[in-house]
Amino acid sequence: MHPIRKKRLTIVLFLLAGLAVAVGLTTYALRQNINLFYDPTQIAAGEAPADVRIRAGGMVEEGSVLRDTESLKVAFKVTDFTESVTVEYVGILPDLFAEGQGIVAMGRLNSEGVFVADQVLAKHDENYMPPEVADALAKASESRDIAAEATKTLAN
């Protein structure tokens, strides 16, 4: 290769490497600000500020959704399978909201550690499947549970 071109190539590579390092360090320093939400473990550890508008995200815990019979008020627990946070919300929930579904809630953490949300967004995962397959999967895991129960009782 021509020496001038070699020199230019080196300059370009240095430019790119320097840039990558600079951006890498910046994003690393800002990583907490880039995170869209706090997860329940962070909230339980007191990393999330109280009385400031923040977002909290995680899975809606199975069997934790309590709907008020007279109003749109709803309370549920959001979990990351190590810690969980109680969320209160008044309003219409997105279509995808369900137990076991990921959500991101926006609101404030009050002094009792309850998250008072004014907006709830549904987060979905990267898995797509036809309804029949989902049903079949659910049935399969159910029967597996039953089978596991059965073997347990048999063993006893």
């Binding site: 880039i34 990267e126 898995n127």
Partner: peptide
């Protein structure tokens, strides 16, 4: 790298896609 509302990629080079 971060917590996002956007879901991770469905297509990955190393794994089979998470859809039928």
């Amino acid at each position: 790298w971060w917590n996002t509302l956007h879901q991770p990629a469905t297509f990955k080079l190393t794994e089979k896609p998470s859809m039928p």
